[in-house]
């Protein structure tokens, strides 16, 4: 869905050099747009735009390169951290980050994320957890909460049939190569500010050569949650962030 933007918003985006002042395709109330902006602000603040090479996922953010004003490559679904590994190893002075949904990172790309993390690749991962597969029509993701209705769990996610929601961040945090792990949300202005700080910190870790950093962002998908944007924001506070607690999980 293309959203018309008013001039004020366009001007605001234009002030962030890393973000292109173009209309985006995300649904009303979607978290992706906010997260894009936070990443771009952080990149601008560190003055690293001309060193950044981003790896975009397959998912709703597949055309993030239309919005980001720096070098970007596509990656096959879930292979994002492997592609980032290849780039960072041959260009260690560039700043390399992946942007991945929960299908991309926590389902099809589980091997790639665990091993990139375990090798301690000096990359930054922005992990967008919206609890569903947005791009393909709202199917269950590994992160879908118990009882949550999706197009493949119409009666609600059954733990017996579908298994448990995956806390991938807590799994990654035990790996010694992983240096910074934080979970944030973008459902309120207060949380957005905290998310901004976490994303900045994750990039700083890479700039300082500290190793693998990952920020999970609890994000709204009003479309496939069957909610209004406000209801979706409230759901993060009332349900999602209860199961996936916010805060720093690891920082070295």
């Amino acid at each position: 869905m293309i959203q018309k933007k008013d001039t004020a918003l366009k001007n605001a985006e234009a002030s962030v050099k890393s973000l292109r002042a173009v209309e985006h395709h995300y649904c009303a109330g979607c978290g992706h747009g906010i997260i894009h902006r936070l990443i771009c602000e952080a990149i601008d603040e560190y003055g690293i735009r001309d060193r950044v090479i981003a790896v975009a996922p397959v998912g709703c953010a597949v055309i993030a390169y239309e919005y980001w004003n720096f070098d970007v490559t596509e990656a096959a679904h879930g292979r994002t951290p492997a592609v980032a590994t290849g780039i960072k190893r041959v260009r260690p002075n560039n700043i390399v980050f992946t942007y991945q949904g929960d299908g991309d990172l926590a389902a099809i790309g589980t091997a790639e994320i665990i091993h990139a993390a375990n090798r301690g690749e000096n990359i930054t991962v922005i992990f967008v957890n919206n609890g569903v597969y947005g791009m393909t029509g709202g199917q269950m993701a590994p992160t879908t909460l118990a009882g949550q209705k999706t197009s493949t769990t119409m009666e609600g996610r059954s733990l017996r049939r579908d298994g448990y929601p995956l806390k991938i961040l807590e799994m990654l945090a035990v790996l010694p190569g992983v240096k910074y792990v934080e979970r944030v949300a973008v459902n309120s202005s207060h949380e957005v500010l905290r998310a901004k700080r976490a994303i900045s910190k994750a990039f700083k870790m890479q700039i300082d050569g500290k190793g693998f950093s990952i920020v999970e962002v609890l994000s709204m998908c009003p479309t496939y949650w069957g909610m209004t944007p406000i209801q979706a924001s409230d759901r993060i506070k009332n349900d999602v962030a209860i199961f996936y607690p916010l805060g720093v999980i690891k920082s070295c």
Binding site: A75, R89, A111
Partner: peptide, 26 residues
């Protein structure tokens, strides 16, 4: 140069994708 023993052939070819995109012979 860079040598990586990858976690799978799937990862290896995608690492090659990244390094090639970054402009070196892979």
């Amino acid at each position: 140069g860079v040598f990586i023993q990858s976690e799978s052939e799937t990862s290896a070819i995608n690492m090659v994708f990244g390094a090639s995109a970054a402009g070196v012979r892979v």
